[in-house]
Design a protein around this nucleic acid. Structure first.
Lengths: 337, 337
DNA sequence: ATGAAAGCGCTAACAG
DNA sequence: CTGTTAGCGCTTTCAT
């Protein structure tokens, strides 16, 4: 592997001169500059980032710790993070917590060992309000942008998130406006703050419209299509007399809708179905899905912007991004009678 | 930031002793071991991976350079890579070439500067058979696993890929078996080897069945749903008298199908449509899509396995993974007459 | 079982 | 404009 010394020897100059040339420092004669440049090129020199970092204490490395990169939402965010981090000269270390605390801890600690300058975090849901790893992150002085809701142990960090409650509220309001009065809710994981916020948005919208929130219309689902199918089956089993179904996310909504189809029901004739998130292909669903678009790519862009500001030492405040209702074919007025 | 020296001073031992304890080297008295361990823990010591790497010349870092992380296929692969790389103690550096040569070069060169031990690569299509960056990779001795087809300039690397020709052949054979004789093909980007292979598979299947390959049935599409819609519109405009449409991938197939729906046509009554890839939610499409499942997650697992072997210095040979036809609702017998 | 010295490849600080 | 010295935090090597 070619080092600075090797070039220096070849060029008959000191290591420092070579170092300066390759870093475009001023105060180098044009002659040596071109000579050294040519030599470096020709010898195939590639700087050793570790040596540089060790000396300069700047790694230009950022970590993204995410529960699951295959989650449609995470993917859009990663797209933005990766693009922009590259553009401002940072490399991105990606690791998955798989929603397990022990694994998240390892991911974070490994990144700390690499002295990453910043973290994009999507903390694993936990009941325990203490989180020693997060304290370590703080102590190391790494900049942190939380993607999504901010759990108690992340109080000192900034975050950027979609306004989940608002989004779910818009979805519910849309159903109410169509004339629905009995709107079932297929809820998400009880430990997920995002899911909780969406539920809260649903409840607020109902109350605002003067409708009671009937516990008999709340069904525990989860995050996946399978979860949605199960919850919908349970709902039909309990003959809850709902005319519309709001799901915590698009996957659950699509699962519920699929079960309705399997039972010979029609959408939106028999049930209106609304999701949340506007994942790719939700518009291509068997019934194009009415949902709330959440600007996940924008969220990623905002996160990078905040990270840049943090790294420049600026004050940064948290951000809340609104979603927009996308009305497609899965919602309509309730059946007369 | 706590260093080994700091712990050494506190413990009243040498740096070496601390280093040895923390690396679980033998020949350390139980007493010092526990004392140093406790101190390190208590002081919040986190090793400096750069210093370690600089000294040991092992970075435990692997790069994944991919055109676009949001591509449904790339996502499944990343899922596997990230999971398994973590499990065998490697961190993953992810960067996107966005299918641009200049950007790919930067991504690779940055990774080289970080002295990554290996690369997972999805080379950007190029006509130029020379690729200087790839020579650099070779010179640096980084291990490489190519994900997908192997371009000429990657001759010296191993690769793992889905058998695209076989997959497309199965799709075509399925249509032929249903009785279709005029099968249109919506092709992908002409520079994409994977797309070429799929086209080749389609042609071979037709010839094998004694059908002529009619150039009038080949339509240039691309990779996206929009591309599929345009190609389908063109096909209808030319009244090509096809009874079935095979697309280079699921997105294009879904685009074509969407256009057919928009024109009031029915699937599979008026046209059978088959895709390739089995992307998530292709089963939830307006007509559940018949396609060829390609084991992208398995492909990722295989890639990591090959990487591990390469890093152990073993001989590794390239692999070709088969796909399996998934018959759903978008294909059926051609309309009588 | 422990320590001292040297150096991985680079750059900050100072000297000339 | 260029060079010398020192040191980033760690581990290898050799000595004790």
């Amino acid at each position: 592997m070619v080092r600075l010394v090797d070039i220096a020897r070849q060029a008959g100059v000191s290591v420092m001169t070579v170092s300066r040339v390759l870093r475009d420092t001023p105060d180098i004669s044009a002659a040596t500059r071109t000579r050294v440049r040519a030599l470096a090129e020709q010898m195939g020199y590639v700087p050793n980032a570790m040596a540089q970092s060790l000396r300069t204490r700047s790694t230009r490395l950022i970590a993204f710790v995410v529960p699951n990169v295959a989650d449609p939402m995470a993917t859009r965010i990663l797209l933005a993070l990766s693009e922009r981090a590259h553009d401002f000269g940072r490399d991105l270390l990606v690791s998955q917590s798989l929603n397990r605390l022990d694994r998240e801890e390892i991911c974070i600690r490994r990144a700390l060992a690499r002295r990453v300058e910043g973290f994009f975090l999507q903390p694993v849901y936990r009941l325990d309000p203490s989180a020693p790893v997060y304290d370590e992150v703080r102590r190391h002085g790494a900049k942190v942008v939380v993607l999504g809701p901010k759990p108690p142990f992340c109080e000192s960090f900034v975050n950027v998130q979609a306004d989940e409650a608002l989004a779910a509220g818009e979805a519910a309001a849309h159903l109410i406006e169509l004339g629905h009065r009995r709107i079932a809710f297929l809820s998400g994981p009880p430990t997920s703050p995002a899911a909780q916020n969406r539920f809260e948005g649903y409840r607020r919208a109902l109350r605002k419209a003067g409708l009671e929130v009937d516990d008999g219309l709340i069904f525990h689902a989860g995050e996946s299509m399978e979860d949605g199918m199960k919850a919908a089956a349970q709902m039909l089993g309990e003959s809850a007399s709902a005319t519309a179904v709001q799901a915590v996310n698009d996957q659950v909504a699509m699962g519920a809708a699929t079960l309705f189809f399997d039972r010979g029901l029609r959408i939106p004739r028999d049930f209106s179905v609304v999701g949340c998130g506007n994942i790719p292909f939700s518009e291509c669903f068997r019934v194009p899905l009415t949902t709330v678009r959440q600007p996940k790519y924008q969220l990623g862009l905002a996160a990078v912007g905040m990270m840049q500001a943090l790294l420049r030492g600026e004050e940064v405040s948290s951000r809340l991004l609104p979603g927009t209702l996308v009305v497609r074919a899965s919602t309509g007025p309730p059946r007369a009678g």
